[in-house]
Write a protein that binds this DNA or RNA. Structure first.
Lengths: 222, 222
DNA sequence: TAGGTAAACTGCACCGAGTAGTTTACATTT
DNA sequence: AAATGTAAACTACTCGGTGCAGTTTACCTA
């Protein structure tokens, strides 16, 4: 299996769930997780408007009433899903600036971990779910995609420090970080999100990371 | 002055058309344009699923029956809107490679015209309308976003020629074009589309174009 | 220029399907 | 037996789409 994050939530296989969590789960809690898993599938597949509570309940093999016992409304359930998915990415790859290590090495690590994040099925699911709604719901847009910009924050700080340290040309650190991530996402995020393009292979990922660092340093190295 | 019956079928800009020709339009044609304009607003505002044919008809100040006289179904109407918007971007900025002009100048032109395109309210409308649906409809995704990739094609060819000419380092031209556009869109497209970020001012646009070219040439100039 | 005809528009009622959310009455678990 | 979960029916909608009777418009002819 793939997902190493919050294994409980993303596991669709209830038997596995039960066996791995011992007998700790009461039936009520199990149902709750079934509902969350089914809701995630339903929303992912049909979007917020397209999703139906009946279909969702059937998916979870649970009475619709039970769904409403756990979540008072469709919207609240939706926000729970989004929140939950968001939380699983709190572990923002906090890149630390090391004055002694080579810039290329540090940047390559940043690029690789960003690609790693973009590669995770989980992360793309979150985006597929939210982005459609974000366009028409600014509130959700900011609350959610703030999270997405979190490791951008980290990179921005890193760049700023490297500039202060005289190892990068002085420039707008925020803008530079945007460029760095833009280079990556142009190949490893947007095309996969909107067209159904396959995600880059391991070799392609390496090329993307290498070339991003190469280009970035060609421009900014002091 | 009389107008041929079907000369108006494909519309460029409905509002402009209406105000400039006014009397020349037969009532049927005017209604048709009213419907298209209203549909554009409705879809833009609520998306495909959220849009309602009743609300749309009211917006167009037209009987719902009339809507269905012109367009047999909601889906067909939607595709008409998308097609119409697409057609208004047929003028793909076809960048031509000039062996004698400086690379920076030519690239700067490409960057500027790309930003120009991304800046147009029209173009962002098209994307806002389609992208949400593209995620769940691969068919629409390819048919529509092919268009978006058209000027990318142009750039890719340009880069290829410059490489053959020995003025750029030999590399994957398609990948390089993707990088070039990624640099631009990271600042002037995606943030505006999903968050409601304001579009860059004229000065900011210049900075983006300058810096994109700078970075690209730092990496690829032979 | 007047008049007639065909086509288009209107407004409304209506259909069947589906929606979120609630209630009721029964079954299972503990 | 008390508590919780259950299915199915029910409410009060909204939706896309249709049928139809009556009105308006466009255009051709006499």
């Amino acid at each position: 299996m793939k997902s190493k994050l919050n294994s409980v939530v993303f596991t669709h296989d209830s038997i596995l769930l039960l066996s791995s969590m011992e007998k700790a789960l009461t039936l009520t809690e199990k149902k709750r997780l079934d509902i969350l898993a089914a809701a995630q599938d339903e929303f992912k597949e049909k979007g917020f408007l397209g999703a139906s509570m009946d279909s969702l309940a059937k998916r979870a093999e649970v009475s619709k009433r039970t769904v409403y016992n756990h979540f008072p409304s469709k919207e609240i359930l939706f926000h729970n899903i989004v929140k939950e998915l968001c939380d699983s990415f709190r572990q923002a790859a906090n890149i630390q600036y090391h004055p002694n290590k080579p810039l290329g090495e540090q940047l390559h690590f940043a690029a690789t971990s960003e690609i790693q994040l973009l590669a995770s099925e989980c992360f793309r699911d979150l985006n597929r779910i939210t982005i459609s709604e974000c366009i028409r719901s600014p509130e959700l847009a900011s609350s959610t995609l703030d999270h997405l910009g979190q490791q951008k924050e980290g990179l921005h700080v890193w760049i700023h420090e490297a500039m202060k340290d005289g190892r990068l040309k002085t420039a707008d650190a925020h803008f530079a970080a945007q460029q760095f991530l833009g280079l990556i996402k142009a190949s490893a995020f947007w095309p996969q999100l909107f067209m159904n393009q396959a995600f880059p292979s391991a070799e392609q990922q390496k090329i993307i990371a290498d070339d991003t660092v190469l280009m970035f340093l060609a421009r900014y190295k002091a």
